[in-house]
């Protein structure tokens, strides 16, 4: 049996649905309406409204990535140190919310944060001042952290589980205290998981338009919102493609870094 023939369906599929569509984004991004070559769609990122949306997205997604990291690392350590019967149950509890529909999870925060929402009702009942966080960048960051936190926890948890306890014991035998053992052994060994977690949080956060629509009202435009509008409302595919190419540059940069640090490809979270 010819094994080369077996690869045909996948080769055909990936050429038609992965490679060609990506080429089309580049084609549209580098041409104008008449099909002539232009860089104006790429340079459009520099116009005030687009660069504002772009830097806002970079700012908010970096902030949520950092918050996710600091929330996730201790959690992953605690989960990785769990032993016995309950460990799988507790891990399950932390994965469970991730299986809820992404939009419903975001809707939940809208319900909690709104001016007449649940949190403000509780605060009002306690006689405390109301929290006006909905439709602000803070609400968007909160939504990003909530939605993407598991993407940070899982890869870090996976690498931490693989660390040999004997290595840590050796460090302690050689006189390291807890902090030193952590900084010199655990942390460096978990770098691949951290990088993979950062990629998995940063990329969806940078490109989201759903969280900013639901939690930011229509006041805050992120680069994802701009691209989405170009495709579904304005219909300027050339401009939308050009902006997407700029976004992809960021993602490729991220991919290169994670490819360098994660050669074995074993820190994939799922």
């Amino acid at each position: 049996m010819n094994k080369k023939l077996l690869s045909a369906p996948f080769l055909f599929w990936s050429a038609l649905f992965i490679i060609i569509p990506l080429c089309m984004v580049f084609y549209y991004g580098f041409t104008d309406k008449d099909g002539a070559f232009t860089l104006s769609n790429i340079m459009a990122i520099a116009t005030p409204e687009h660069s504002k949306a772009f830097f806002e997205a970079v700012k908010l997604s970096l902030l949520s990535t950092v918050i996710c990291f600091f929330l996730a690392y201790p959690l992953a350590m605690i989960l990785a140190n769990l032993k016995g019967k309950r460990s799988s149950l507790i891990a399950l509890i932390f994965i469970l919310p991730m299986w809820m529909n992404f939009l419903l999870r975001t809707l939940a925060w809208q319900t909690l944060l709104e001016k007449t929402g649940v949190i403000n009702s509780i605060l009002g009942f306690l006689g405390l001042p109301a929290l006006n966080i909905i439709n602000t960048p803070g609400a968007i960051v909160l939504g990003m952290v909530y939605n993407f936190l598991p993407f940070m926890v899982l890869p870090i948890y996976n690498v931490l589980c693989k660390i040999d306890v004997n290595v840590l014991n050796a460090a302690r035998d050689l006189g390291a205290n807890e902090a030193q053992a952590f900084l010199k052994v655990t942390l460096p060994l978990s770098v691949p998981g951290i990088i993979s977690g950062i990629t998995m949080v940063f990329v969806p956060a940078l490109t989201t338009f759903v969280i900013s629509t639901i939690l930011g009202g229509s006041k805050i435009l992120l680069i994802g919102n701009v691209i989405e509008q170009e495709f579904t409302q304005t219909g300027n595919w050339h401009l939308g493609s050009g902006l997407s190419i700029v976004l992809m540059m960021f993602i490729i940069f991220n991919m290169v870094i994670s490819a360098i640090t994660d050669k074995e490809g074993d820190t994939n979270a799922l």
Binding site: F17, P21, L22, M24, S244
Partner: peptide
């Protein structure tokens, strides 16, 4: 090379995958 292609939709932003397929289906 093939595994690299496999990884594209996983690592690429979903919005880019979405619009690229949209452009393909239109054309």
């Amino acid at each position: 090379i093939l595994m690299g292609v496999v990884n594209i939709p996983m690592l690429n932003a979903e919005i880019v995958t979405g619009i690229s397929l949209m452009l393909l289906f239109i054309s």
